[in-house]
Design a protein around this nucleic acid. Structure first.
Length: 266
DNA sequence: AGGACGCCCTGTTCGC
DNA sequence: TGCGAACAGGGCGTCC
């Protein structure tokens, strides 16, 4: 699930549960989710320390370690965090477990092992090394439009490419395109100034609204595409049957009436 | 450069 | 009901 709003919710969850608590023990259940750091080094960096602040950039969550460095988490398609009490076995698919001295634990859970955990010196250096673009929720209009103008391909791949702007995945790109009334196969170069500005505005508002709602799909407005993107779903705006197509190997949902294709884009 | 594709994983749903 | 295929909100490398 995790796109920007979901990771924002994880950040708030971590803040509310796990800050300023001494980490007694770290258990790595799946060493293969660690990237660029060994289990031993991760344990050494965390045990006896605490997490004292968090940041989010795109789909990455950063937690600063009191002893120096940052624990960085990416959640793949199925990741989440769970804070729980006790010493009983952690939730299914727990890949990394921080056990605090207060008797509680923070589990990093991935059903499919597509997420990754890193240890970084600083957030800024990590973002640079990974080639991430500016955060999709905080980027300003001018840099957004400037970067959009450099695109040569489709709008949807542009939105989802983390090097352009960071944080948008399949679900939210569909939502943004729907609300901006842009067909998923439109090319970035075919968008005029007005459409570009609309795309920026909807990117901002969709991510903001979803983050404020805790990324809970059920809490999103009924007027959003997201609430209807399933077989037999109809457009919340014009009631037309929604359509799907494949782009970049992923399913795009859209309304053929509200998001008309342009012949040059087909 | 951009896009299609396979792959990494695991669980669920779909179609015959 | 059974069983394999297809698919699922991510991202990387490879190839064209």
């Amino acid at each position: 699930m995790p796109e920007l709003p979901d990771v924002e919710a994880f950040k708030r969850y971590l803040n509310a549960t796990s800050l300023h608590k001494t980490i007694g023990r770290v258990k790595v259940y799946a060493p293969d989710v660690l990237e660029g750091v060994s289990g031993r080094r991760l344990r050494n960096a965390l045990e006896g320390k605490s997490l004292d602040q968090t940041r989010r950039h795109g789909k990455y969550l950063f937690a600063r370690i009191s002893g120096g460095g940052w624990l960085v988490m990416h959640f793949g398609m199925t990741g989440r965090l769970k804070y729980f009490k006790g010493t009983h076995s952690p939730p299914r698919h727990t890949r990394l477990l921080l056990s605090f001295e207060n008797g509680f634990n923070l589990a990093y859970i991935l059903q499919r092992k597509l997420g990754r955990v890193f240890l970084a010196g600083s957030g800024g250096s990590f973002i640079k090394e990974r080639g991430l673009g500016p955060d999709a929720m905080t980027i300003g209009r001018a840099p957004f439009l400037q970067r959009l103008g450099k695109g040569r391909g489709g709008v949807k791949p542009w939105l989802m490419n983390q090097g352009n702007i960071a944080g948008i995945g399949n679900i939210y790109s569909d939502e943004i395109l729907f609300q901006a009334r842009v067909h998923p196969l439109r090319k970035t170069g075919s968008l005029d100034e007005t459409a570009g500005k609309r795309l920026f505005r909807k990117t901002r508002s969709v991510l903001k609204t979803a983050s404020d709602a805790g990324a809970d799909p059920e809490a999103m407005p009924r007027s959003w595409l997201m609430r209807h993107r399933k077989g037999g779903g109809r457009c919340p705006r014009c009631s037309s049957p929604l359509a799907t197509l494949k782009a970049a190997g992923r399913t795009s949902w859209f309304c053929p009436e509200c998001q008309p294709a342009r012949p040059t884009d087909q």
